[in-house]
Design a protein around this nucleic acid. Structure first.
Lengths: 335, 335
DNA sequence: TACGGTTTTCGAACCGGTTCGACGGAGAAA
DNA sequence: TTTCTCCGTCGAACCGGTTCGAAAACCGTA
């Protein structure tokens, strides 16, 4: 299609290898020759062929991004991870191969075995994720967002959901709330193995017990149209509750409408505190106090760790698991 | 890294070319030889190297997906295009290189000139999109979602926003509404050149005039936190208006809360009709009558057209511009 | 003038596939 | 028996880069 390095060499009157060295800078080239080469490159509009380069260098400069799209996940939040990952990758010189196959393990095998990617980022990793065995066989650097049971060989990034839960419970207890209700992710998230769901819930329950606060957890709705009824039922079931914790994006997004329709004032009648990203809050104008879920930070960190590992092969750094400390942003919806 | 075709050939006791032919089926191979080859492939766990194959065949089996992320676009809707594109591509045997660079033209040049992709899908194409000149120089098949001024050489898919507007206006007129207000996309979308914005608005205004209905258009808010106030101001300014058309996802998503807070009953006090996808309505439990914006269909069609063109190079089919006919789904929010 | 040491450039091999032309052997037709 | 086909397989060239070892050119010094 376009001009090749041989064309450049011919026009510049040098050999192909000289052009290659001028481009990579791995050997010194005289100023005059270099000039002729770059002139030729410009005149011809030469761009190195990615496939040929990948073949020779065994580096594609492409990262695989594996995400699966579960119907009980709230789609909007996922885009924040995707954007953070692609933008960070580009800044580091990598492109992103986006893989959303339903059969995650097979897809992972496909892109690693064929050498399409130098490394992979896994989103939404489950406690016992079926992609991990495949990943270990592939012998390719990988970073995850989401904490699996076995982190061997992986750079793992996730929010410290336990700490987040404790911070939220303490926050409400310090305000004097004797009874709290928690809306968790939908039940399928738990049964599928989305560890963040029970890491948050169990820590909340435990901390409440430790602090002498009554706390009851209820599953959020996977079907959005049932959210208003479910929230209503939960509130009805706990007339004494003065505080609501929401750990579910879909529920949080519609909470203003739901509470508005019931005539519940926040924080007058009910203190509300949630767990999502600032971006998410902005998109839906959610006025609640919340703990930042940091998708941007997590996605960025995962890519940076992965790229570091790729750029320093055989480096001494052990894989790291980092649980990001929660950060509470007070918007005055609790008192 | 992994085994190569030479390893397979050695184990099976044949030449490399024979293995290649067994794999591709382009020449006949005796049953017994074929069996030995596939046994070797299985035993070794061989997968062909993508870069080498791309180099030899000049096909990467990868499509570029170019999207830009504007702060005044509503993020959740974009994910539907991305999912439709990636899933369709996979079904056709292609992977997706996701490109979100801020500098779209440069990114496009990079992935085409380097031969990373066989073709590209452009999302959210502007009336006078700066990526198009680059695209024409690249001589690579392309499909777009969004209708540009010059469609030369492109397969273009978009909703027929003009027809959608006329259908909506007629629908409201037939119900007897004398005055209608329309909330359009935010002003930056117009000035940037998002043609769908004015194609819808201008057609609505024109059709209303033709039908003898009063219709006033107002810009939606780019800043979500200002949406309630803006909707309120628009309604206050038109106390006689009995119908509201919403052509803006962000506004639609919060409309239940906004109208609820104002005590406006739908359709009792106000008929509401909107333009978004069924998926979007489901995610936010929006109860309004709407015209389907069909992101799934558009994304799928664009990829299918692109793949067809790639699989039939030099085929006789002229590039096609297809404006999908609008489909109104009555949810009873107008009367 | 010959010599040693740098600096710059070249040629060839290699990465791992695909594909073209040719060749050997088997079976059919002459 | 010879000739012609057709089938199955092989070897070599090629896709477009990178990289290693060595040659060539240039410099100052003995």
């Amino acid at each position: 299609m376009g001009p090749t390095i041989a064309d450049v060499a011919r026009v510049a009157g040098v050999s192909r290898s000289t052009v290659s060295y001028a481009l990579s800078g791995k050997r010194s080239i005289s100023g005059e020759t270099r000039q002729r080469i770059f002139d030729a490159i410009r005149d011809l509009g030469f761009t190195a062929n990615a496939g040929a380069r990948a073949l020779a260098t065994r580096r594609t400069m492409v990262l695989g991004l594996l995400m699966q799209f579960e119907p009980d996940e709230f789609a909007p939040a996922m885009l924040q991870y995707v954007m953070a990952v692609t933008e960070t990758a580009r800044r580091k010189g990598y492109d992103i191969l986006l893989v959303t196959d339903h059969d995650g393990p097979a897809a992972l095998r496909r892109i690693t075995d064929s050498g399409m990617v130098d490394g992979v980022v896994l989103l939404d990793v489950l406690h016992d994720d079926p992609r991990l065995p495949v990943l270990r066989e592939a012998h390719r650097p990988a970073a995850t967002v989401g904490l699996p049971a076995d982190t061997e060989g992986l750079d793992v990034y996730d929010l410290d959901f336990g700490a987040a839960a404790r911070q939220i419970v303490d926050h409400l207890r310090d305000l004097g709330h004797p009874e709290i209700v928690l809306i968790t992710p939908p039940r399928p998230v738990f049964s599928r193995g989305g560890a963040y769901s029970w890491r948050f819930r169990d820590a909340a329950v435990e901390q409440a017990a430790r602090r002498g606060v009554r706390l009851t957890a209820h599953y959020g709705e996977a079907d959005p149209s049932r959210i208003p009824a479910t929230v209503g039922a939960v509130l009805d079931a706990h007339p004494q509750a003065t505080a609501l914790i929401v750990h579910n994006d879909a529920t949080a997004a519609m909470l203003p409408a739901v509470l508005g329709a019931r005539g519940v004032a926040v924080p007058g009648d009910l203190s509300v505190i949630s767990l999502y990203s600032a971006d998410f809050a902005r998109t839906f104008s959610l006025p609640y106090t919340f703990v930042e879920s940091a998708p941007g930070l997590l996605g960025r960190s995962a890519v940076e760790a992965l790229v570091h590992r790729l750029d320093h092969p055989g480096g001494p750094d052990r894989p790291v698991t980092r649980l990001v400390a929660p950060h509470l942003i007070d918007r005055g919806s609790t008192r």
